[in-house]
Design a protein around this nucleic acid. Structure first.
Lengths: 339, 339
DNA sequence: GGTTAGCACTCTCGCCTGAAGAGTGCTAAT
DNA sequence: ATTAGCACTCTTCAGGCGAGAGTGCTAACC
């Protein structure tokens, strides 16, 4: 299919119209809506060819055509033009981040997810800061009462994690301070993925008197690396219900309960790290998970500092407005990077 | 309707059968399922009376009857017996809290909500610790780098709150320590609701040199009092989709988006504080919010320490298993109180 | 008088049918 | 290569029909 060929034009029209109208597109309606200079019959022939080639399909004989997954793929790769955002949408983006300068990273992400879903009416997914890649910044243990203390861990990307731990009664505040400053010295600048069992054992040796209460400290860091890395922030989870293709409860059920399983979502968002900065589109069955095989995901990575720290994405039906989704995701990611 | 009257028995049967079977209950099926010693015709007469009295209603002529809101109300007030839990369910409860001793209150609540929804198949709502009622325990500011610090606030109920704040460059660590220990002394034992603007102004006077960076501290406490108090933890939000009465997307939509609005949910859960320890049931339109007028809420308060600190509840269709919901909610709340 | 059997009536639900509408594929003409 | 024409297919929707379930009423029964 060469550039400027009639087939290309017709495929483009079918895809964009189907995205807009959500029902099969017939030759007659194309001829009516766009004055292409061909009769419906000609268009019909071309459409039959496009079906032969696997780009279109008929839901049943004598309905119009709708794009196949391959058709969408060709569209986003070859035909789509990235649309510019409305003035209003641009303004919305600016406003959100206007007042966000000082907040914690968690807050920024939550607002971002709300922003994405409110502009697009799709569901937004944000894979939070990859704690693994971020560096240790500071650790502190503040005594709460005689038995308990609060362990606080801060990463250079502004991520904070707490845990209440037991303190041995025998521990003086002087000793505690010494331990804390030892740990800070020892861990300074390490990325959290360097916090391996070898390192832990080394620390254990050095601090063998206090090992029992330090176990909690180690546990916290480990939890941060595993469980917490999979944290996904969602926005607009009910937007999907407005899509006509999800009018059936059964279809929605799987999707909505997927939204409660963060580790699954995290795997969905794991992008090939090669394509940093580019926007990745996964259409239908290109996604691994069963539940989203009738959905598409438009996503990109965002960075804070120099390391990649997360992914933001929009999930909609395969019939989603890719053009808009791509530009929204791109713009917001860019905006996020200058925070 | 006196105790032991036939009407009572029949009302009980209609309500329990409808809860179980989810379709209108007819006189014939009652006579068949329960050998009551009356013919269907007699039961029919009684049912006609019950309809007259407003306890039952027919969805259409010549269908069976279903309970009205008034019918459910009579049932829960007069007829229902609290059911005991299965061994398996009891075990489930024990297991969850077995490994929870050390965790932060937030974690405990999350697990509790998962527990509630998994046992009952309804949606669980937990109104978190009422920070307002809990007392200030400890405040700490840990420097992260030369410009920023992490402010950490701990309440006596184990609630932790963080915020990244700007530190004036000119501030020495000695000065910082002095400020922190002054604040700790000054705030010791105060309940957070005593943290009023009068107090803030007093602090402002005493620390007028540092006011600008302390503003963030004050803000944090204020936020904790307002925004954060309304935090609601949800579990099993998609369970509602399994109920036959919510087979229609339109009905579900409102409910699911309500689940994203925490302040609304918080208002739903606000219970008359008079009935601490008792389980409160709100049936259908007894709930204020539009979206849950076809749902019922079974809830009770739980305490940590001596002050009431929250509410746990189960939300299901009006046709929910009240008997089970009441006992689950009661048992879990009780279990929570000995943490 | 309370209870019951009998019966006509009503309403839902699933199924079929038929007409309207939309779109196609094929053929023959341009 | 393109187009007009036409028969054909398929969906959708309304209407109709029978089965099933349940009712209300009446008259008989204990």
């Amino acid at each position: 299919m060469g550039v400027g060929s009639r087939k290309r034009d017709i495929l483009r029209v079918v895809v964009t119209d189907y995205i807009k109208l959500a029902h099969p597109i017939g030759s007659r309606s194309i001829a009516r809506r766009y004055k292409m200079g061909f009769s419906p019959a000609t268009i019909r022939n071309e459409m039959a060819d496009l079906e032969e080639l696997g780009y279109l399909i008929q839901p049943h004989t004598s309905a119009g055509r709708i794009p196949t997954q391959k058709g969408y793929r060709y569209y986003v790769d070859e035909l789509m033009e990235e649309s510019d955002l409305d003035e209003e949408e641009k303004k919305k983006i600016l406003e959100v981040y206007e007042y966000e300068r000082m907040r914690e990273i968690e807050e920024i992400i939550k607002h971002t997810s709300r922003l994405l879903s409110s502009i697009t009416n799709y569901t937004s997914l944000i894979l939070g800061p990859q704690l693994r890649k971020s560096a240790f910044k500071k650790l502190q243990i503040m005594p709460i009462d005689s038995q308990r203390g609060l362990l606080v861990l801060v990463s250079d990307t502004g991520f904070v994690k707490n845990k209440v731990i037991n303190l041995p009664q025998t521990l003086s505040s002087g000793e505690l301070n010494k331990i804390v400053s030892y740990l800070n010295r020892r861990l300074e600048g390490l990325s959290l993925e360097q916090f391996t069992s070898r390192l832990i054992n080394e620390l254990r040796r050095d601090l063998y008197h206090y090992v029992r209460f330090l176990e909690d400290t180690f546990t916290l860091v480990e939890e941060s690396l595993t469980e917490d890395e999979r944290r996904v922030i969602l926005g607009g989870t009910t937007n999907i219900l407005n899509q006509p293709e999800f009018g059936d409860i059964e279809k929605v059920k799987g999707l909505l309960s997927l939204f409660e399983q963060h580790s699954q979502l995290a795997s969905l968002l794991s992008a090939p790290l090669a394509d940093v900065d580019s926007v990745i589109i996964r259409i239908g069955r290109e996604n691994i998970l069963e539940e989203v095989q009738e959905c598409s995901l438009v996503m990109t990575t965002y960075r804070l500092g120099n390391d990649i720290i997360g992914t933001i994405g929009l999930l909609g039906p395969t019939r989603m407005n890719y053009s808009k989704a791509v530009s929204v995701v791109r713009q917001v990611a860019r905006r996020l990077e200058v925070m």
